[in-house]
Write a protein that binds this DNA or RNA. Structure first.
Length: 285
DNA sequence: CCACTAATCCCGG
DNA sequence: CCGGGATTAGTGG
């Protein structure tokens, strides 16, 4: 694998400002904020919401029973709220949508199943296969959405706009993480290659030096193992960077026998998008 | 919007 | 059961 094989690692990100925070997050936020103060014990006064049909996280995900179920799960994501919630400071819009959903869920929940163990036990929403698939499809088309697109998608999937927004954010983060890992691997390989190359050159240098110091019956010879011929002028060149075929490198030298014998090859974009340039010097006999 | 983080789910050893 | 990866979501910049 050569460095020219490294894919363009740039990630294009748009700047769609999201407005979508709404009142109903406040409850969730509150229950979430607790975590920073350490795990909280159940507050007797908490009127919790449950997930309605499913008590077992992913059950509905694996076998979505009905639209209602999807809708309930999606909307509430599993929150257990604290009635004394402090309002979140952010701007909140799009409230009705969630209110409706909360009501559905509340009505779905049977009176008895909201017990102590439910308090502060945040059940995690898992999107259904269908929802994930649609989101994925949309992501492939556009990795960012404008507000309208988010709203439409949310409507289509029975999710809140905020959930769609978050899903896209997380999805972008995952993409970026994967890319970073890939780049890291490539850089590791590049490092190894350079190390090998360095060792090889060191060795070669030693050989040359020893040849110089101990004159034999034959004239000095350059080790040919790593030399190739310049395709345009037929001069000998140390064109082999381990693993990178000279064929893939563009020889940009000028006319044969009059060029400067200096060629530059650019071959990779690092994670930060800057190019690393490798320079080869043609041997000048 | 992103980075960071927590909470939860889920799966394999 | 436990550790760790994946996913969803909150917070702050």
């Amino acid at each position: 694998m050569g460095f020219h094989d490294i894919p363009n690692t740039g990630i294009q990100l748009g700047l769609d400002l999201s407005l979508g925070q709404h009142d109903h997050h406040k409850q969730r936020d509150q229950s979430h904020k607790k975590r920073k103060d350490g795990p909280s014990k159940c507050n007797k006064a908490c009127p919790s919401l449950t997930l309605g049909p499913s008590d077992h996280g992913d059950e509905a995900n694996k076998q979505p029973n009905s639209k209602t179920e999807i809708s309930s799960r999606s909307a509430v994501s599993s929150l257990v709220s604290n009635s004394s919630s402090i309002k979140r400071e952010r701007d909140n819009f799009l409230g009705e949508e969630f209110e409706e959903e909360v009501e559905k869920v509340t009505s779905n929940s049977k009176g008895g199943d909201v017990e102590d163990e439910a308090c502060y036990t945040r059940k995690k929403l898992r999107l259904t296969k269908e929802q994930s698939a649609v989101l994925e499809e949309n992501f492939i088309e556009h990795s960012t959405l404008n507000l309208k697109q988010k709203q439409e998608l949310a409507m289509k999937l029975n999710l809140r706009t905020r959930q769609v927004e978050v899903w896209f954010q997380n999805r972008r983060a995952r993409t970026k993480l994967k890319q970073t890992e890939t780049d890291c691997e490539l850089l590791k390989k590049y490092y190894e290659t350079l190390t090998e190359e360095n060792n090889r050159l060191q060795k070669e240098l030693q050989e040359l030096k020893s040849m110089q110091t101990s004159p034999g019956p034959f004239p000095m010879q350059i080790p040919t193992s790593t030399l190739i011929t310049c395709p345009s002028c037929e001069r000998i060149c140390n064109g082999n960077i381990n693993g990178y075929s000279p064929m893939t490198m563009l020889h940009t030298g000028s006319k044969a026998h009059h060029h400067l014998h200096t060629n530059k090859y650019s071959f990779i974009r690092s994670t930060s998008g800057k190019s690393i340039k490798k320079r080869l010097e043609w041997y000048d006999p």
